[in-house]
Amino acid sequence: MSNFNLTEDQQDCLQELINVAMGQASDQLARYLDTFVYLKVPSIEQVSSQSLIGTLNPSDTTVAVVSQGFFGYEGIRGEALLIYQPKDSDKLADLLGYEPDELSVEEQIIDLSSILTTTFLNVFASQIENQMSYSAPRLLASHKGAISEHIEQQSYNWDLALKVKITYQVTDYSFNCDMVLLIPESAIVNITDVLDRILASF
């Protein structure tokens, strides 16, 4: 297992790219829900597949999680997890303005997740002169242990990953969801090359 700690400048550069992407994704979300979205400073950290579950609020065992893979040029790839609390997913129909039974909660969650993930990553990609393609969003079973089961499966694919966590909080409804991006170690070197290129231009 290698260590890919980003330098302070690389971390700062990545954080700023994420800030800009997060801002535009939250603007989309705000327009979609016709409300205001409160933004927090995103967190970036290195995680091992063993420790990841502990960083994702392990006490919240009954969350709904949507997973969507992303793939760009230059070997930039990863997975986005949209994590909802059960109380929040119940509020979605109201937030989205759907009539009861118009669309299942699962379909609403997938819709919203896809908007957030693709808006965020398209803006991120455009800043690094890249372009993303996406796998279909997948609702991981919203039953007890959904996150841990999924993460256990992921541990077969990577030992270390860069974890980026962004919280979208809709103030009117006390609704929030976390977007967690997991970039496996094999893709990190490609990200750092891009960051170094941006930093060299300053």
């Binding site: 800030n19 800009v20 992407a21 997060m22 801002g23 535009q24 939250s26 603007d27 705000a30 205001f36 979205v37 933004l39």
Partner: peptide, 9 residues
């Protein structure tokens, strides 16, 4: 100068 471009903000 911000990335939080929501009209309300």
């Amino acid at each position: 100068i911000s990335a939080d471009i929501q009209p309300e903000m």
